[in-house]
Write a protein that binds this DNA or RNA. Structure first.
Lengths: 203, 203
DNA sequence: GCCCAGATGTTAGCGGCGATCACATTAGCA
DNA sequence: TGCTAATGTGATCGCCGCTAACATCTGGGC
C-alpha cells in the first residue's frame, strides 16, 4: 500500500489502478450516475484533468471497470462451484450469476447494459473468459451436445433471469425466491432437454 | 394537425406528447447520450425549461419514452404472429423480440437496461402488458404447464438472447444468423422439454 | 363580455460534468 | 549531471439538469 500520506509527492505512483479502484467504489456506493471522472479524481486526490493522462475518455475508464467486473464475476461463479456438471451444481452457479447482478447492479449494468466499447481489448478478453468458462462446463457435462448452442441457450437464460430480476420484472425481494426461480428454470431446461441430440441445420 | 407554422402561438398545444416524440427521435438517431431535455426542447422549438412543466425531471421523460417503447414492442410481437401456439410460431415471435432490440438498441436499453423508475405508473402498466401477452401465449400453447415458471423461463431466454446480441457477446452481424440462433434455442427449450409436467416444490 | 386564476412558456442563472490546452513538476535515462 | 518524456495542475469551453422569478395565454364564473 503506497501513498498513506495525502499528497506527499507530486506524482501519484499508480494513478491508473487507483482510478479503477475509486471508480468501482463510487459505482457500488452511488450507482452509475455517481461515477464521473471528476468524482474519481476527487476521491483519488488528484486534479480533474489527471485521469485523462491514463484514460482517453470516460468510456475507457468504464470499460476498465467493466473488465474488473468480468473477472470478479468469474471468481464468484467459480466459488459457487469450481467445476459443475450436474444440473443442480449448474443451478448453483446460475444462482451466483443472478446474485452478482442483484448485489452489484450498477456494475452489472456497466458490464452488460451499455453501448459498450466493443473494441476495448481488456473488455473483449474478459468477456471471452466468462464465455469460455461457461462453455467448458457445458462440454464437460454434455459431451454429446452442440456446445455452441447449448452454452448460448444456458447463458441467455441465466442472463435474462438476471436482468429481469434487476429491473423488477421479476420479484427479487428475497434471495430465496430468486434462487428458487433460477433453480426451477435451469432444471426445466437441463433435466428434460435431450441435450445429447443436436438440432438439425445448425453449424 | 395543429401547429404548422413555427411559433405561431405562445403556447405549444401538446408539448407533453411532442416531447415524447422528439425524445424518441433523438434516441433512435443518436443513442441515449443524445437524449437530453435541452435537446428535446430545441427540437420541439421551445425553451429549455418548458419541458419541466410536464415532466418533473429527465427520468420521468425517459420513463414515458420507455412506456411507448413497451407498446411498440408489443405491436411488433403481435405483428410477428397474432396468437402463436406452436414452437415455430413462438420462435418467430422471439425473433421479433430480438430484432426489436437490435433495431432500436437505445430504446431497448432505456426500457430494460436502466435503474428505472419502478414506481412510474405508465411504465409498470406497459411492462405488465408485455408480461400478460407472453403468459397468454404460454397458457394457450401449454395448458398443462405452470404458466408462471414457463413464461418466466421463455421470457428470460429470449430477453437474454436479445441482450447478449446487443452487447456483441453473440454475433449479430447478419439477421439470418441471429434468427437461426434464436430459433435453435427456442426449439431446444420447447420441443424437448416436458412442459406438461410441473416441477415439484414450486407454488 | 369581463376578469381573474391557474396553466403554460421564457429568461437568467447555478453548479456539475466531459474534454482540451498550456504550463509545472518529476522520473529515468544517456 | 542534464535533458526528454511522462505525469499532474489550473484555467477554460460548452453542454447538461434543474430552479426561480417573471411573462403570456386560456378557460370558467360572474
Amino acid at each position: 500500500m503506497p501513498m498513506p500520506m495525502p499528497k506527499a509527492t507530486y506524482h501519484h505512483g499508480d494513478l491508473r489502478a487507483a482510478c479503477v479502484r475509486a471508480a468501482m467504489e463510487l459505482l457500488d456506493e452511488g450507482g452509475e450516475t455517481a461515477l464521473s471522472l471528476r468524482a474519481v479524481a476527487r476521491r483519488v486526490g488528484v486534479s480533474p484533468a489527471a485521469p485523462y493522462r491514463h484514460y482517453p475518455d470516460r468510456e475507457a475508464l468504464v470499460s476498465a471497470v467493466a473488465a474488473v467486473g468480468y473477472r470478479e464475476l468469474a471468481e464468484q461463479l467459480a466459488a459457487a462451484h469450481p467445476s459443475p456438471s450436474t444440473p443442480e451444481q449448474m443451478a448453483s452457479v446460475a444462482i451466483a450469476y443472478v446474485q452478482f447482478a442483484l448485489e452489484r447492479p450498477a456494475l452489472f449494468r456497466i458490464m452488460f447494459g451499455e453501448p459498450c466499447d466493443r473494441d476495448n481489448d481488456e473488455r473483449v478478453a474478459a468477456t471471452a473468459a466468462v464465455s469460455l468458462y461457461l462453455r467448458e462446463i457445458v462440454v464437460r457435462s454434455f459431451p454429446d451436445a452442440d456446445p455452441e448452442s447449448l452454452a448460448t441457450a444456458i447463458w441467455a437464460l441465466v442472463h435474462g433471469l438476471a436482468f429481469l430480476h434487476l429491473d423488477g420484472k421479476l420479484d427479487a425481494r428475497t434471495p430465496a425466491a430468486v434462487a428458487d426461480r433460477v433453480t426451477g428454470a435451469i432444471r426445466a431446461l437441463l433435466s428434460t432437454a435431450r441435450v445429447g441430440v443436436r438440432s438439425p441445420g445448425r453449424r
